[in-house]
Design a protein around this nucleic acid. Structure first.
Length: 297
DNA sequence: CGGGACTCCTGCCAGC
DNA sequence: TGCTGGCAGGAGTCCC
């Protein structure tokens, strides 16, 4: 699921359940996800109060009252589910409806869970285990290995045409690859890069340096920045995008997937008015790119 | 050094 | 049906 809008949605769902609450106990069901869980992870979480949650790039950061940060990354298939007060699962934090408190945390891929002092359980489920958890001093948030080289937030002031021009000045890689690279812009993933490029009318195959027009007005950069922001903002408003492996309808699932212009629309007609093109799927650095060859130049 | 291929892992689906 | 290959929202690491 998780690109920026999905992680943002998860974080916003988790925040009201977690903030201000104290962790009574934590449990891991296996030694690792993508990396080993940190040493003494569960012990170090126990009795800590969660002060507030933040999203940075695709990471969720939980600030604890001992000046440490509990970091989570959902990888490809990670999700959090919140089970309030031992009763039926309340779908506060993801798009996946779970009911029946007896099953909370007992699924095949439920690898980690915490129980709060108020009885709420939060379960982390991740079939492919590409997710990440870490726990480190808050003072290291800038220097942390996973966070140190991350680029600007696309919804913040840091992203603008001049920034892109500067970063991509000498880049020969395709625009698609550059936009996916988290060291330039933090939080874009395969879906939203495809969608933003379509809206901007830019080819994913163009060299990234296309956006580095020196001396002239950076029209392409301006448009792309605006379209990136539009896509992300709309997707967050829609609760993100929910693809496969989503069960049931309870009102909290994301719906932005219904508005994809190009993603997963191979061989379908271009949605641009006045364009008779057909959406094409190509592979760039091992990942699918969907675009309209006719109106993306 | 930049850029791309490879890698981790499980599940699902199309095609035979 | 059952098997096989390809593909999936990420991103660190390795190799040229």
């Amino acid at each position: 699921m998780p690109e920026l809008p999905e992680v943002e949605t998860v974080m916003r769902g988790l925040a009201p359940a977690l903030e201000g609450q104290t962790i009574a106990s934590a449990e891991i069901r296996r030694p690792n996800l993508r990396f080993p869980f940190p040493d003494n992870f569960t012990e170090r979480l126990t009795n800590k109060k969660i002060l507030h949650l933040e999203r940075r790039a695709k990471y969720i950061l939980a600030y604890l009252d001992d000046d440490s940060i509990w970091l989570s990354h959902l990888g490809m298939t990670g999700r959090f589910s919140v089970f309030v007060d031992g009763e039926n699962g309340q779908n506060l934090a993801d798009f996946y409806f779970q009911s029946g408190s007896t099953d909370a945390g007992n699924g095949k891929h439920d690898h980690f869970m915490i129980t709060l002092k108020n009885g709420t359980k939060v379960v982390y489920t991740d079939p492919r285990r590409f997710g990440i958890m870490d726990l480190f001093p808050a003072g290291q948030v800038q220097s942390h290995k996973l966070l140190a080289n991350i680029g600007v937030e696309p919804l913040g002031n840091g992203l603008n045409a001049a920034y892109l021009a500067g970063q991509f000045m000498t880049k020969k890689a395709p625009l698609k690859a550059a936009l996916l690279d988290q060291k330039y812009i933090a939080g874009l993933g395969n879906i939203y890069v495809c969608e933003a490029l379509f809206r901007a009318g830019l080819s994913p195959l163009a060299k990234a340096s296309t956006l580095a027009t020196r001396g002239k007005e950076n029209q392409k950069g301006e448009i792309l920045v605006r379209k990136i922001r539009d896509c992300l903002t709309e997707a967050i408003k829609a609760g993100g995008s929910t693809l496969k492996d989503y069960v049931g309808a309870d009102g909290n699932e994301g719906s932005f997937q219904q508005r994809f212009d190009v993603y997963d629309r191979e061989n379908e007609t271009c949605k641009n008015e006045n364009c008779t093109g057909t959406i094409k799927r190509i592979v760039q650095s091992g990942r699918s790119t969907f675009y309209c060859p006719k109106c993306q130049k």
